[in-house]
């Protein structure tokens, strides 16, 4: 289903900022590739520890120039710096933390999500391959205490990403708690998708027009707050 009218939402950096407001001090958080990685720009100075599945706790900000160390990258293969209290470990230890339920929150990008909290992210069929990149995504979904998606509401080609039925291969089933997009903040509830916040200037009807499942409108519906 394609939509003819392109709605003007908030930029990717602001989606990341909105997600960062959900993180509590004391949380251990793993951020996926894409918009989720941008969340790290908004939490400097806060008491939040980032886990990188490559084997690092308390991942520091991106490294530039003389600070780049070829033995020190995050799980998106970007050079980073360490912080006081940074810990390194091997991949088994890393996935012991992940699968063992130690992540307070995991934020992932997504290609599609439905109203049951299933999402697809590891393979885009348009690429014409039966294989794809799973990386740590499926393990992170299993262990996350809260699983959030940070994504564009509609795909670049105009196709809807919040759908009734996934047509892309799923990453996980029934695990997504909240969806943060350029247009809205939506909670996955047992009754369906609850629209809680909309981007400035948009109405619930605007968001519904680019969302395939029927949205439940929160009585406290408001503009996205940063």
């Amino acid at each position: 289903m394609a939509n003819s009218v392109k709605l003007e939402g908030i930029p990717r950096e602001m989606i990341a900022l909105r997600v960062s407001k959900e993180i509590q001090d004391g949380d251990y958080v793993n951020l996926g590739i894409g918009i989720p990685t941008l969340v790290s720009n908004w939490i400097e100075g806060r008491d939040i520890i980032l886990q990188s599945e490559i084997g690092m706790l308390k991942t520091g900000p991106l490294a530039y120039d003389a600070d780049v160390n070829q033995d020190l990258i995050n799980a998106s293969c970007q050079p980073v710096v360490e912080l006081p209290g940074t810990v390194y470990f091997d991949i088994l230890e890393s996935f012991t933390m992940i699968r063992g339920g130690r992540m307070s929150m995991v934020v992932m990008g997504a290609l599609q999500v439905n109203d049951k909290g299933d999402y697809a992210g590891w393979a885009n069929p348009s690429r014409g391959l039966d294989v794809g990149n799973i990386g740590g995504s499926m393990d992170l979904c299993v262990g996350a205490n809260k699983l959030f998606l940070a994504m564009e509401h509609v795909a670049v080609d105009g196709k809807l990403k919040i759908v009734k039925h996934l047509t892309f291969p799923p990453t996980t089933a029934g695990r997504v708690n909240k969806i943060f997009t350029d247009l809205a903040v939506i909670e996955v509830t047992p009754k369906g998708l609850l629209l809680k916040e909309v981007a400035p200037g948009l109405t619930a009807a605007d968001v519904q027009s680019v969302t395939e499942p029927k949205l439940i409108i929160s009585p406290e519906l408001k503009e996205i707050e940063f």
Binding site: L92, I98, N133
Partner: peptide, 24 residues
Amino acid sequence: EQAVRDGEIELEVYPMGTLAEKYR
């Protein structure tokens, strides 16, 4: 990737943590 598309090389894909456990 071209060789994978052409079926000249097999690519078998697992979740990362699953691979770690298979080696373990």
